[in-house]
């Protein structure tokens, strides 16, 4: 109907202006030198720290190009000999080429991301912005649902999904997300929604907007960082979730990446460590890309989205 935001509100959606312009003229050169040194030190610190954080990945990368037998005999960071056979062998070691498992994981993960974005944000809007009886009670119940370890829930869940004949489909993995069972993200979004100034929806309400419009046209654009967080985390967690995928997917053609990775090692017999590392690296690539690409939404959120 009408514009939901007045022009004055739009200013708050502008990108942050840099505060550096306020430096006094006299001290500018000195400060610039000092800040260059400071920033140099900062970068040096961040790089050094980054190496500590990266070490495991580098080590895994190094191990993935070593022959299986040398992984334990020569555990150092620099491989004496680069051999890519772990990648080629690992890719085709299981019943299906590894791409099959990547594809299955992608289907599960996309379903989960979509489900969590829609259902959790709806529920979060209710908890953050609506007044209704029993709000605190239901909120407590919601939190309670994430306090019970999955290991005692999984057997009854299996029984339930088995009755529905959902075992060995992606439904037990995706449908719960469509129904907002990931309370973690509801809570996350509630906290973010509560950080959005009330004046914005008050103004919209005066203009006659209903809650669905406020949700869709004000909250969602302003909560892009929260939505990005939800999407990224859901992606990564669903991508790495071993336990429930192991239990609910029984046929190899439905297996996902975590299950496939686990079949390279067996504590009672031989293990193909090299193939495990190689395929772990392969399966990290999509997650890393999602993060690298997605993280800018975490921080650009308000600044670029604006309000129309």
């Amino acid at each position: 109907m009408t514009d939901l935001a007045t022009p004055s509100k739009v200013t708050f959606a502008e990108p942050a202006s840099s505060p550096e312009g306020r430096a006094s003229r006299a001290g500018r050169t000195v400060r610039r030198v000092r800040s260059t040194v400071a920033s140099g030190l900062k970068h040096a610190g961040l790089v050094a720290f980054g190496f500590v954080m990266l070490y495991p990945l580098l080590w895994m990368l190094a191990s993935s190009v070593k022959p299986n037998a040398l992984i334990f005999r020569e555990p150092g960071l620099i491989p004496t000999d680069v051999d890519l056979s772990n990648y080629t062998d690992g890719w085709s070691a299981l019943l299906h080429p590894f791409s099959r498992y990547l594809l299955n994981s992608a289907i599960v993960v996309l379903g989960c991301v979509l489900g969590n974005l829609v259902s959790c944000s709806l529920a979060a809007y209710a908890f953050a912005r609506l007044k209704f009886r029993g709000r605190n009670f239901w909120f407590a119940i919601m939190l309670m649902t994430i306090m019970l370890p999955i290991h005692v829930i999984i057997v009854p869940q299996y029984v339930m999904f088995s009755t529905l004949e959902w075992i060995n489909t992606f439904l037990p993995l995706i449908v719960p997300k469509l129904l907002a069972t990931d309370a973690f993200f509801i809570f996350l979004m509630v906290q973010f929604f509560r950080g959005i100034p009330r004046e914005l929806d008050e103004a919209a309400r005066i203009d006659g907007a209903g809650h669905l419009r406020i949700y869709w046209q004000i909250m969602m654009p302003l909560a892009v960082p929260a939505l990005a967080t939800t999407a990224i985390f859901t992606f990564i967690w669903a991508w790495n979730d071993f336990f429930s995928q192991l239990i609910f997917l029984t046929k190899p053609d439905m297996y996902t990446v975590p299950i496939a990775l686990r079949t390279f090692v067996d504590s009672t017999g031989e293990s193909s460590w090299g193939a495990l590392f190689a395929m772990s690296i392969v399966s990290l690539i999509p997650v890393f890309l999602v993060f690298l690409f997605g993280q800018k939404y975490l921080v650009k959120g308000i600044a670029t989205t604006g309000i129309k």
């Binding site: 209710a126 709000r135 239901w138 719960p176 469509l178 949700y215």
Partner: peptide, 29 residues
């Protein structure tokens, strides 16, 4: 006076998940 109906609408997926998927296994455990 309150947004009960709206809340029910916004929470509908969550309620469905709670009662159809989460509550049963929790009660069973």
């Amino acid at each position: 006076k309150g947004d009960g109906r709206m809340a029910a609408l916004f929470l509908a997926p969550w309620f469905a998940g709670l009662f159809l998927i989460t509550a049963g296994p929790m009660a069973a455990s």
